Amino acid sequence: MNAIAVAGSLNALDAAWFTTILRDAGHTRATVTGVTLEPMPFRGAIADMAVVRLEYEASGDPGPTSLVAKIRGTTPVQAGMDAAMGLYEREARFYRELAGSVPVRTPRCLHVGDGTSTPLLLEDLGGLRMGDQMRGLALSDAERLMDVLADLHARFWESPVLEQDWILSPGEGAFAGMVAQLVGSGVGALRERYSDRAPAGVLDAVATAAPRWGEILERCAEGPRTLVHNDCRLDNVFFRADGEPVLVDWQVLARTRGTQDVGNLLAGSMDVEDLRASWEPLLRRYHDRLCGQGVRDYTWGECVRHYRQNILYPLGAGIALLGHLDIGDDRGLGDAIVLRALTHTADLDSLAAV
């Protein structure tokens, strides 16, 4: 893997800047005396990130000794995606306006910068267990995540909060257009790469459906609507010592069906055989908790049908990771996502549901 340097805009932030920001927000009364920045081992889709190590003077109550700084990336791909989809600003608004009201754990936000010269400063979760999408989602973790997602979705089920125009609608606009274009252009590569590995018939079904992928996305975004993370996959989850999930990367926060999160998580993160054995009891757990939190007029049959449709989402995301978007995939994650999603799509005959 090529070394990733710390962004110049982050290197420009000195101890005095961190002292002012942390004091003004009430996070410390001490003076920051030393700042060390360590690059993350990966580059985000639109952001550059670094771990910030802080030292304080001996007097006064010290603040956090490590933070994560997140700032807009400057590569052409990063800048283009952010300009087209407003990803950095959406995450910044989430932490300013919504993070305090969602019933799920998120990183504590210490500062929301402008994204160009000053960063988003978040709690460093480096001491927690990090989800590994390549390794796959364990059943016990999946069960906890079903509970967390049901709580989130029940809280915002058909909520007026969803009408805010900065919250993404994944079935329309630049986001949907980009995904539909990637699927359409990737069909040939899919056939070449997976002809001897994918379940029989599923590649033909995807090729037939590809020209109308925009319509499929619209169908998958039909109601009932709630607030969804919309990039809910194992790489975006940390786990506390007691197993409680912490969700990160809220750049594509959206209003759509709750099964968007459930389908994306399970079809993109769980190994094929585990998913075959577990998807139905996991979905049942999600639906039962959703109804237990007060959601009405949402039947089990509707939930299953919506799940069958929404597992098509990680398939499109996997195609993007296979090379259409140069965001760094040295692990071969795109390949794993596509195979998992293709197999689950075939198992549940998902394209017949749209």
Rank of each mutant, 00 (worst) to 15 (best):
Asn2Ala: 15
Val6Phe: 05
Gly8Ala: 12
Ala12Arg: 15
Leu13Lys: 03
Ala15Thr: 09
Phe18His: 01
Ile21Arg: 06
Ile21Trp: 15
Thr31Ile: 11
Glu38Leu: 06
Met40Ile: 08
Arg43Lys: 02
Ala47Met: 02
Ala47Thr: 03
Val52Asn: 10
Val52Glu: 13
Ser59Phe: 01
Gly60Pro: 01
Pro62Gly: 07
Ser66Ala: 09
Thr75Tyr: 02
Ala83Ser: 11
Phe94Met: 04
Glu97Pro: 09
Arg105Leu: 09
Pro119Ser: 05
Leu121Asn: 03
Gly126Arg: 12
Leu128Ser: 11
Met130His: 03
Gly131Arg: 11
Asp132Val: 13
Asp132His: 05
Gln133His: 00
Leu137Tyr: 07
Leu139Trp: 10
Ser140Lys: 14
Arg144Lys: 12
Glu158Gly: 02
Pro160Ala: 04
Ile167Cys: 07
Gln181Phe: 01
Gln181Val: 00
Val183Ala: 04
Gly188Leu: 02
Tyr194Met: 01
Asp196His: 08
Ala198Val: 13
Asp204Ala: 11
Thr208Ser: 05
Pro211Asp: 08
Pro211Arg: 07
Pro211Glu: 07
Gly214Gln: 10
Leu217Gly: 03
Leu217Ala: 00
Leu217Gln: 05
Glu218Arg: 15
Cys220Ala: 14
Thr226Met: 09
His229Val: 13
Asp231Pro: 02
Leu234Asn: 13
Asp235Leu: 04
Asn236Leu: 07
Asp242His: 05
Gly243Glu: 00
Asp249Trp: 02
Asp249Gly: 12
Thr256Arg: 02
Thr259Trp: 00
Leu265Val: 04
Leu266Ser: 13
Val272Asn: 03
Glu273Tyr: 14
Leu275Tyr: 13
Arg284Ile: 08
Leu290Thr: 00
Leu290Trp: 00
Leu290Phe: 01
Thr299Ile: 09
Trp300Ala: 09
Glu302Ser: 05
Val304Asp: 06
His306Lys: 00
Pro314Ser: 03
Gly318His: 04
Gly323Val: 00
His324Asp: 04
Leu325Pro: 05
Asp329Phe: 04
Asp330Leu: 03
Arg331Tyr: 07
Ile337Thr: 01
Val338Lys: 13
Ala346His: 09
Ala352Asn: 11
Ala352Arg: 13
